[in-house]
Amino acid sequence: MKKFRGIFLKNEKEIAKMRIANGMVSRILDALGEAIKPGISTMFLEEVTQDICHKMNVKPAFQGYYGFPYALCCSVNETVVHGFPSKDRILKEGDIVSCDMGVCYEGFYGDSARTFLVGEVSQEAKDLCRVTEESLHYGIAAAKIGNTLYDISAAVQRHAEKNGLKVIRNFVGHGIGSSLHEKPEVPNFVPKGGANVPLQEGMVLAIEPMLAIGTYEVTILSDKWTANTKDGSLAAHFEHSVAIRSDGPEILSLSSNYSGAY
């Protein structure tokens, strides 16, 4: 594995393993999307995730990571990221729920997230999810050789703000490979200063816009994980693991069974 400015560049064999890992993640997210409906608990989604991981004989990436207790981050409505599944949190008509999931396969990680609609939701919630997912794909389109890391950031931020949404700034995307989080950080906004780098073949980036209707500020709850918007406004989260290739970006976590949350 080569390095460029401290960033691990993956070879074909390593990317092939990450393609398998991310394929597993996408299948789990497909199953969660089918399971989500009014009346179920978010803990049921954790149980679905654990069951599929067991059947695939693969390790959930998040469980135990810095003490996180679950395989699934399950974030409802105003929760941006890192929500705990709970038997007491029952999904209701009109909710939106972000599911963030990762696995480790033969020493390499996959990581992806989607926000799902629960039954019939407001137009505001639909637009939030649509623009967040579109922002992800604008960022991915910019993830090509000849561009820099902050070209990805600018593409996400431009589309989000053009549509009146706020970019969460406390959390960013990241490199991914034999570790769940590697260099570089991938912000969803263009920071002042920071370590901008040219994109190189073999980089693999987890690009993950998190957008909110109200403020970009967040509050961390007493569990030290759950991050809510400070004003209680709705937030959405979409993520793909993307390899930088000579012929353009390759989405490793793409699913043929998923056509969009909206």
Rank of each mutant, 00 (worst) to 15 (best):
I251N: 03
E134F: 04
E14L: 02
A243V: 08
T219P: 00
L205C: 07
N77A: 08
R158G: 05
L29T: 06
R89Y: 13
T148D: 12
L252C: 07
R169I: 10
F238M: 05
D111M: 11
L180W: 10
S259I: 14
A206D: 09
K55Y: 10
A16H: 09
I140T: 06
A21D: 07
K10Q: 14
S246R: 15
G214D: 07
C104R: 15
E161Y: 08
V76Y: 01
T229H: 05
I152E: 03
G177S: 10
G139A: 06
I207P: 02
G260Y: 09
P184D: 04
G146L: 11
L128H: 07
A71V: 11
K144N: 09
G67M: 05
K87A: 14
M56G: 00
M101V: 14
L72C: 08
S178Q: 10
S256E: 15
A143H: 06
M1W: 03
K126A: 03
N57V: 06
V103E: 02
E34A: 14
Y105R: 05
P38W: 02
I90E: 05
E239A: 11
V190I: 12
K166H: 11
D111C: 13
L9A: 09
P198F: 08
K2A: 13
T215P: 00
V97P: 02
G67L: 06
V118G: 01
E46R: 02
S112G: 13
I152V: 11
A195M: 14
Y258E: 06
E124H: 00
P60I: 03
C53Q: 05
D231A: 06
V242K: 04
G177V: 05
R19Y: 00
L180Y: 13
S112H: 09
E124C: 01
R158N: 14
S75W: 03
Q63G: 00
